[in-house]
C-alpha cells in the first residue's frame, strides 16, 4: 500500500463528478481526497485524486476511469509532482496568550489570519497534506472550533504538462 496522486482531465459537463464518484463507490475504490476545478480551457475540468492502494488497485482504477467517455486523460503524478491543499481553521483564543501563540504558529506555517473575533482566530494555510496536518496538530491544543479543508490540487514538476491533445 502506498499513496498515489492521480490527475484526471474530464469534460466540464454536469454529472461528471457523479460519474467518477459513482465509479469509485460501485467498484469499491477508497479515495482519500478529490478536488475539482476548471482548467485553462473552459470546456475541461481537472480532478485530482489521492488514494492509498497497491499497484493492482491503481491499475484497475486507472482503467475504469479511462472507460468513462467523459474522461479525457488520466495521469499518475506520484513521482515529482507539486501538490497543494488548503485549510481554513477556526481556533479558540478565549484564554490569555492563545491569540499570540496561534498567530505565531500561523506565521511559522506561512499561514494567514483571515478573520478575527473576540474569542476566535481563523487561519488559512496552504501546503501538502503533511504540512497542513502538522499545523492542525499544533493548533489542536488551543481548541479547534472548525476545520474546512480542500483536497489537493497537483501537477507535474518542470516543463512536463498534461494537455488534452
Amino acid at each position: 500500500m502506498s499513496r498515489h496522486v492521480i490527475g484526471v482531465l474530464v469534460e466540464n459537463q454536469p454529472g461528471v463528478l457523479n460519474r467518477v464518484s459513482g465509479l469509485f463507490s460501485r467498484r469499491g475504490f477508497n479515495i482519500d481526497s478529490i478536488s475539482v476545478g476548471v482548467t485553462e480551457r473552459s470546456d475541461v475540468s481537472r480532478m485530482t485524486l489521492t488514494l492509498d492502494g497497491d499497484e493492482k488497485v491503481l491499475e484497475q482504477l486507472t482503467k475504469h476511469l479511462n472507460k468513462l467517455p467523459d474522461v479525457i486523460k488520466v495521469t499518475h503524478l506520484d513521482a515529482g509532482c507539486v501538490e497543494r491543499g488548503l485549510a481554513l481553521v477556526k481556533v479558540d483564543v478565549s484564554s490569555p496568550e492563545s491569540r499570540s501563540e496561534v498567530m505565531q504558529v500561523a506565521d511559522v506555517f506561512r499561514g494567514a489570519v483571515i478573520d478575527v473575533s473576540r474569542d476566535t482566530v481563523t487561519v488559512e494555510v496552504t501546503g501538502t497534506e503533511d504540512k497542513i496536518q502538522a499545523m492542525l496538530d499544533l493548533l489542536r491544543e488551543h481548541g479547534i472550533k472548525e476545520v474546512a479543508r480542500t483536497g489537493v490540487a497537483a501537477m507535474a514538476r518542470g516543463p512536463k504538462y498534461t494537455g488534452t491533445e
Binding site: K56, Q60, K63, H64
Partner: peptide, 8 residues
C-alpha cells in the same frame, strides 16, 4: 477489447 477486464 476492454483493458479493465485484463488481470481483473
Amino acid at each position: 477489447v476492454d483493458p479493465a477486464e485484463i488481470s481483473k
